[in-house]
Amino acid sequence: MKQVRISIIGFGSVGQGVAEVLMKKQDYLTKMGLDIKVIAISDSKGSFINQNGIDLNSALEQKRQKGTVANVQKTGVEIINEIEHDVVIETTPTNIEDGGVGLENMLASFENGRHVITSNKGPLALKYKYLVDTANLSGCKFKFEATVGGAMPIINLIKGVLAGNDILSIQGILNGTCNYILTRMLEEEASYEQMLAEAQERGIAETDPTYDVEGIDAACKLVILANSVFDMDSTYKDVDSVGITKITPESMLLAYNDGYVTKLIGEVRNGKLSVGPRLVPVGHPLSVGDTLNVASVQTDLAGPVTITGRGAGSIETASAILSDLIAICNNDN
């Protein structure tokens, strides 16, 4: 049995999802010969440490009841620096101004020789190359499937299954909130404002939806995809992005009558990155509805390959993190 000691830094929706998935999949992991021990969990108020392995069930219970797992006044960075372990699961909230604590956590992990798995887009959308180079120099693995498209395994698809193919372009729907609003606008022939309100009521859109509806979130994901697939060093500021706020239901109907649905599409082509509303032929693989994400990769050998999946949700995102964790444990690249 191979013992792997991990920390979960950031215990919000995704961090808790990781804890739940680890509990749920314990037998599965044991069968694979993996003994995953969570030795520390940090949230914004402090940390919970148990060198023998935290009982995840009670940690989740405590989080639900008290709003925090903290029993010691230690930050995530302190845990990374002071407690011996192998893999840091970095699930703190995204900061796209300067990368925030996420960036600090990742760099501290590499400095201490710990592998990093993250769902945090901010640091990668700002300093991708610096992070990857630092990880390589310190001999650490750096996995971030969960940053792009939640459960939709696009990065691992390209890097793993499609290895050997040259990737010519990628286009897709990378933001579930926008896809939901646009899908509902067409269904109800209702305004953007009305369907945004519905999405907020259903917990699909944030109270301040700017990050989603202005295309910033999609742009961040596109940057991570472009950087990792095309070895670029772009930041989200390099993306020519337009959001969905100006789209009218009348325009969607006009397009639909001619066989098109309006979608917020992110695209990398010839080194150019763009996010904006586009017309997608009805029935085209990219014309998925609801909160689904989708990406179509054009390859030289395999032709177009399209993958769709749930772009958000704590368990769905944790699924991507678990697959990265298993890959690290098995020493896969």
Binding site: L168, S169, Q171, I247, S251, Y260, E267, R278, L286, P304
Partner: peptide
Amino acid sequence: LLVIEPIETQFI
């Protein structure tokens, strides 16, 4: 004015 174009469906 906002212009919405169709996606590129033919790959080069």
